[in-house]
Design a protein around this nucleic acid. Structure first.
Lengths: 247, 247
DNA sequence: TAGTGGTCTAGACCACTAT
DNA sequence: TAGTGGTCTAGACCACTAG
């Protein structure tokens, strides 16, 4: 049935198995609630050891596609979670995934010394150099958010020579500076638009806005970016997926 | 050094190793950026196989305590993430973890047929029976949020005979109905307080509020609860921790 | 009692990195 | 070249669940 595994591929066997099972689930060949093949059965079918199958199944579980009951079996989860999930994408990626066309107006990009709050976020000495970036973020040419970003200058020298109107900041950080976003802490609160923000976003003073503060870290837990984004409440909603820390 | 493993314990060896290493990291015996013992070294030290050590290390990585570089080694991550993380706790647990005393005023608890939106969230037939619960949530006796909750009636019969002023809803669902919260989808938006909500929360009409819509699921992905919570913006902020799906 | 997932072993080979 | 993490094997025993 599924001896499609290429043992000479760069892709590990467990990843190939994960992929194959994902496809079967999405194609409806394995349906919600229905009993899934057991680990031993899959091991035989794919001609691999049980530990290898297991690695694939643990991945599928942590992705929410299957669940497992000790002594009973493995089952396809009965409903897909609609994941607009606020994963680690930036504004551009997020808008694209919503089917909108993102653009930016760079209002400011300067090199300055870090304020206290920023130094704390980025784990820097009080007077370290940072880039201070202010952008108006548009979706389909309508103002969506006003964003202030701080980046440690020593991590991305010459950032001020890059055209941020066109390029996604996250793409630049990844490709030009080899900074890989790994995780982030976000806090969200509701507020009333100040005069300045209201003017930028073309809304009334005092209208509700969603304020998101985000610090992004590398895998080594080094802070990369501190950002403060104010969204129009009438056009934006943040979606999250929460789960227990599964292995 | 660490032959503290109890092989007769109910706790798996890998979990014991995870715990032991966690303690060493938190005690500062293994410091940020410093080289961690290799898998082979740990296997020898704990007298277990490398695969068992590996299971512990993968867990520590997914918890953000360590990071690993292929061909190089394992390292302690250089800063603890302050996790006010919005994990799967309910209002009561969340307030307690913030050092506040939670309480509730139950404004309504009725059994009714599900509205369309609710039926959709809970994956029910249009006219299925649900419990409709409305509560004013207080922290240190100050109004903090107004919450409307819907629960499928067949999952928690006789819910209306429970005293929700004292007990945490999540505790009741877990203990009395054996409903284990496993994951949830949340969406957050900013809004202006309506006349009704403003009166409940003792704020001005039009003041900013944070509106959180949450659907909680079991491990089998069965919807358990659909909730709509309106928080005072001046007293509440939601915090999230985002990461890539690591194995 | 038979089958399941969870745990564990004692090896092995690989690609990668640093020296 | 030596050491690392990533992958993989072919077994084994356990606790648990269902018929």
């Amino acid at each position: 049935m599924a001896d499609i595994l290429r043992r000479d591929s760069a892709m590990p066997l467990h990843a190939q198995i994960t992929e194959a099972l994902q496809l079967q689930i999405k194609a409806g060949e394995l349906k919600a609630g229905e009993n899934f093949p057991s680990e031993r059965e899959l091991a035989e079918r794919f001609s691999v050891s049980r530990m290898t199958v297991r690695q694939a199944l643990l991945r599928l579980r942590s992705d929410g596609l299957i669940y497992r009951e000790r002594g009973v079996g493995t089952f396809v989860a009965n409903r897909k979670i609609d994941v607009h999930t606020r994963n680690l994408s930036g504004f551009s990626e997020e808008m694209i995934s919503l089917g909108l066309t993102p653009s930016s107006r760079v209002l400011q990009l300067t090199r300055e010394t870090a304020a206290e709050r920023v130094a704390q976020d980025l784990d820097l000495e009080p007077d370290a150099a940072v880039f201070h970036l202010e952008r108006l973020r548009l979706a389909d040419d309508e103002p969506m958010a006003f964003e202030t970003t701080y980046l440690s200058a020593h991590l991305c020298p010459q950032l001020d020579s890059v055209d941020l109107t066109v390029n996604s900041l996250y793409e630049i950080l990844t490709e030009k500076y080899n900074l890989q976003m790994h995780h982030a802490a976000e806090s969200l609160e509701a507020a009333a638009a100040t005069r300045f923000v209201a003017a930028q976003l073309d809304i009334k003073i005092g209208a509700p806005v969603l304020v998101v503060h985000r610090v992004v870290y590398s895998e080594a837990n080094q802070p990369i970016e501190s950002a403060h984004t104010t969204y129009r409440a009438d056009r934006y909603r943040a979606t999250f997926y929460l789960s227990k820390n599964a292995l």
